[in-house]
Measured scan of single mutants.
Amino acid sequence: FHVTIHVGDITFHIHGVSEEEVKKLEELVRRGADWREIKKTIEEIEK
């Protein structure tokens, strides 16, 4: 999957994300995680 996440003024683009990881990111966004937490999760996914 290709994912784009907008957190305030920050936009993250992630490529090659599995469905499971998409759900993890959706959950973070849904519970209102700040951009640092989302960035950390994205960095883990990209490894």
Rank of each mutant, 00 (worst) to 15 (best):
I38A: 01
E21Q: 14
E44D: 11
W35M: 09
H15T: 09
K39R: 11
R36D: 12
K23D: 06
I45M: 11
K23G: 07
E27H: 08
S18Y: 04
E21I: 14
G8T: 02
V3L: 12
V7L: 12
R31G: 08
A33Y: 02
D9N: 15
D9R: 14
H6Y: 08
A33I: 04
V29L: 13
H13M: 05
R30T: 08
V29N: 02
E27D: 11
I45K: 02
H15P: 01
G16H: 13
R30M: 12
G16I: 11
A33Q: 02
L25S: 00
T41K: 08
H13Y: 12
L28N: 01
E19G: 11
G16T: 09
V17R: 03
E26V: 13
D34K: 10
E43I: 10
E46H: 11
V22R: 11
E43S: 06
E20R: 08
T41D: 01
I38F: 12
E26H: 13
F12G: 00
I42Y: 02
H15C: 07
G32I: 02
L25T: 00
E46P: 05
I42L: 12
V7Q: 03
E43Q: 10
V29R: 05
H6I: 14
L28A: 04
K47D: 07
I14R: 01
E27Y: 12
T11C: 04
K23S: 09
D9S: 14
E19M: 12
K40P: 02
I38K: 00
H13N: 05
K47H: 12
I38P: 00
F12V: 04
V22I: 09
T4D: 06
I45G: 02
R30S: 10
E43N: 07
I10H: 15
V7R: 03
D34Q: 06
V3W: 08
E43G: 05
K39G: 05
F1E: 05
K24N: 07
E21T: 14
K39Y: 15
T11A: 04
E20L: 12
K24C: 05
D9K: 13
D34T: 14
E27N: 10
I45D: 01
V29A: 07
E46K: 09
I10L: 11
F12A: 01
T41Q: 09
R30Y: 10
V22Q: 06
K24W: 10
G16W: 14
I5M: 05
I5D: 00
F12M: 03
W35V: 08
G8K: 03
G8W: 04
F1S: 07
R30I: 09
I45V: 04
H2K: 08
H6G: 03
E37P: 01
I10P: 00
H13E: 07
V29C: 09
V22D: 01
F1Q: 10
K39T: 07
T4Q: 04
K23F: 15
I5Q: 00
K24S: 08
E20F: 13
E19R: 06
E19A: 13
G8Y: 04
S18W: 03
V7K: 03
V17K: 02
R30D: 07
E46V: 14
E44P: 01
G16D: 09
K24T: 10
I38Y: 04
L25M: 03
T4L: 07
K23H: 11
L25A: 01
L28H: 01
R31V: 05
D9H: 14
H15W: 15
D9T: 14
F12D: 00
K40F: 11
H13V: 11
I5W: 02
G32R: 07
I10K: 15
R31M: 08
E20H: 11
K23W: 14
K47W: 08
D34N: 14
V29I: 10
K24D: 04
V17T: 03
R31S: 09
V29P: 00
G8S: 03
I42V: 08
V17P: 04
W35N: 02
H2M: 10
K39V: 08
G32L: 06
T11W: 09
T11E: 03
G16C: 09
V29M: 14
H2E: 10
E20C: 05
D34C: 15
H13G: 01
G16K: 04
E19H: 13
I45H: 03
F12Q: 00
K39A: 11
A33G: 03
S18E: 04
I42A: 03
K24A: 09
V17L: 14
F1L: 12
V17M: 09
E37M: 04
S18Q: 06
V22K: 09
H2C: 12
E44F: 06
I14K: 01
R30F: 12
V17G: 03
I42W: 04
I14P: 00
S18F: 05
K23P: 01
H15Y: 15
I14E: 00
K23V: 09
I5A: 01
G8N: 08
I38N: 00
R36V: 10
K47M: 13
K40R: 12
E43W: 10
K24R: 13
E21V: 14
F1W: 07
I45E: 01
W35Y: 08
E21L: 09
E44C: 04
W35Q: 04
E46G: 11
A33M: 03
R31E: 05
E37V: 11
W35I: 13
V7S: 06
F1G: 07
S18P: 06
G32Q: 06
E19P: 08
L28E: 01
W35P: 05
E44G: 09
E19C: 05
E20P: 07
L25E: 00
E37F: 03
R36N: 12
H2I: 14
H6F: 10
E44A: 09
I14D: 00
L25D: 00
I45L: 10
E37Q: 09
I10Q: 14
K24H: 10
K40V: 09
E26D: 10
T11I: 08
V3S: 02
K23N: 09
G8R: 03
H2Q: 08
V3D: 01
V22L: 13
H13C: 08
R36L: 13
F12W: 13
V7N: 04
H15L: 06
A33V: 06
T11V: 12
T4A: 04
I10V: 13
E46D: 09
E43P: 01
E46L: 15
R31Y: 06
I5G: 02
D9E: 12
R36F: 12
V22C: 07
H6L: 10
K40H: 11
V22S: 05
R36A: 10
E21M: 13
L25C: 01
R30K: 11
R31C: 04
E19F: 14
I10Y: 14
I14Y: 04
R36Q: 13
V7G: 02
G8F: 04
K40L: 11
I42S: 01
V17C: 07
E43A: 10
